[in-house]
């Protein structure tokens, strides 16, 4: 459990970082908070020839509020978000979810960009991006492009990001007035990755209006199920019959089957988290 040898670079600007990534001969991989990458290096499941530490790149840090949307720099740490005074007003769903992400020590270092780039199927941040219809900005030496969250997360640790690109920021629509948020996850111990979870927003709670519910920890990537959302829109959040109809949408989900829970258990738990989150909407 010692990392293989690698070169280490700590560029001071975005263009320098992108240049290092652009040169394929470098075998470079970005390093953000290191909370996932360092264990992967030590387990030797990742063995880049060069680590490009992004912590010196000022352009990647910070939160800026343009009124109806919030831009969050990739190197913003969970901790920075939690301490942002407008968080509850502007991004209430994120405020609900943050305490469930790992532990203080990890939130002190882990970054939004890192979580989104890694795309762990059970991670909260990707699901939040899906529920909130966020846009992800990718930048390479050749330029910048923006991908909606719904097209970014492609599968188990798989995203639309190219190897020479960095996630530079995300743009998240700010909560509209009257918007409702709910978050519920089931993790065996506090801070563990969830066995099933859901993050949701709606324009109104009763009847449910314009529901966007993103599940995580149940499939290869965070998912929204249009059939499920349609079945619930226009209904009361405690409408058992509607919930039963809605959960039939799980038929199309390829549930994760692993050590923590079988696919059948995850399917059952997905129904439970849905119901419980709706109760809090």
């Amino acid at each position: 459990m010692k990392a293989p040898d690698f070169r280490y670079e700590r560029p001071e600007s975005l263009s320098a970082a992108l240049a290092l990534l652009a040169d394929e001969a470098n075998g470079a991989q970005p390093l953000a908070g290191g909370q996932s990458l360092m264990p992967m290096l030590n387990f030797r499941v990742a063995a880049p020839e060069m680590l490009v530490d992004l912590s010196g790149v000022a352009e990647l840090r910070g939160i800026s509020d343009s009124g109806d949307s919030i831009r969050i720099g990739a190197m913003t740490r969970y901790r920075d978000l939690a301490e942002w005074s407008d968080l509850e007003a502007k991004l209430p769903l994120v405020a609900l979810a943050l305490p469930h992400i790992a532990h203080h020590a990890i939130r002190n270092r882990g970054t939004i960009g890192g979580s989104i780039s890694l795309a762990d199927p059970a991670a909260e941040m990707p699901a939040l991006m899906m529920a909130l219809d966020a846009e992800i900005t990718l930048t390479s030496a050749d330029g910048e492009r923006t991908v909606p969250a719904s097209e970014f997360f492609l599968g188990f640790y798989e995203t639309a990001r190219e190897e020479n690109e960095l996630v530079t920021s995300v743009r998240v629509p700010a909560a509209t007035s009257g918007q409702r948020s709910a978050f519920y996850e089931l993790a065996p111990r506090h801070g563990d990755y969830a066995m099933a979870g859901v993050a949701m927003v709606a324009d109104a709670a009763s009847p449910i209006t314009n529901l966007r519910a993103a599940f995580f920890g149940i499939a290869g990537q965070p998912i929204r199920l249009s059939v499920l959302e349609a079945a619930l829109n226009g209904k009361a959040p405690d409408d058992e019959a509607a919930i039963t109809v809605a959960t039939a949408a799980f038929d199309e989900v390829d549930f994760i089957d692993d050590l923590k829970a079988s696919a059948a258990t995850r399917r059952h738990l997905a129904g439970v988290v849905l119901k419980r989150a709706l109760a809090e909407l």
Binding site: P39, F43, P188, R189, H190, G191, D192, Y193, L259, K260
Partner: peptide
């Protein structure tokens, strides 16, 4: 409630990390 060394049928221990082998934690 938590701890178990989980083996596959062919004798591979599957949870050899602190993320997968669950020790009891203070919060619980």
């Amino acid at each position: 409630l938590y701890e178990e060394c989980i083996y596959s049928e062919d004798g591979q221990m599957l949870n050899t990390t602190m993320a997968d082998y669950m020790v009891p934690m203070a919060a619980e």
